[in-house]
Design a protein around this nucleic acid. Sequence first.
DNA 1: TCAATATTTCGATTAGTCTCGACATATGGA
DNA 2: TCCATATGTCGAGACTAATCGAAATATTGA
Lengths: 123, 123
Amino acid sequence: MESEEAILALSALAQPTRLDVFRLLMEHEPHGLPAGEIARRMAVPHNTMSSHLAVMTRAGLIGAERQSRSIIYRARLGAARALAAFLVKDCCGGRPEICAPLIAELSPCCPPAMTAAKEAAHD
Amino acid sequence: MESEEAILALSALAQPTRLDVFRLLMEHEPHGLPAGEIARRMAVPHNTMSSHLAVMTRAGLIGAERQSRSIIYRARLGAARALAAFLVKDCCGGRPEICAPLIAELSPCCPPAMTAAKEAAHD
DNA sequence: TCAATATTTCGATTAGTCTCGACATATGGA
DNA sequence: TCCATATGTCGAGACTAATCGAAATATTGA
């Protein structure tokens, strides 16, 4: 991920409504939610939400697909992962020891590199 | 990490100069760099840089310590890790399988669950 | 074709951010 | 104390983002 791309994603998420929308859409993976439903749940006018969704789409954080009259938005989990990786990647270049604790922090909820699907059922 | 705190960190990093400064300071861990040196390297007036550094400090991304006439800034790696974790944490709640790939993505550069405890002592 | 629904675009207002010159503060040494 | 160095604060101008009413665009079904 390039800096310019990261800046887009960071500014998209650096806004309360949009951050909440992204989290909402993450919760609704893989089905997604229609634009109107998102606006209703966030208690934001539909046109305001529309511009927020446009910002997030431009940043690559979400994707849209028309389904009859509705437009279904879905979180792009890969984008979140890429951004998270970007934030700690630099330090890894020369010194893996610096970001190793990140793995440790995430590992409790997501056992790394093994039968994650089964082992994590106790969560 | 709370949303409000995350928003502060995200907006702090959602600006080209500040993102570059953060990466620069990451590279210079654990020694840090004086404010003037940062401004010089980024080719930005010292007062402009001063306000950027203030924003980042307020967001908890960097820390400052006076050393004689200079003020040495250092990246707070824990903040970067916390932000990265925040970005993927929600999905882990119900479905670890969604963020397991993040671990996979970071693992190549940072072998997980190794000497993390020993190496992370200085952060 | 017409009306109802779902979403986006336009336009204007308001609020916030970025930048930098000028000035202020803090430190160390002569 | 006085000066040089290092950094921070203030204030103004230019730019950008957020919000939302009103109008425009798609889609579906009668």
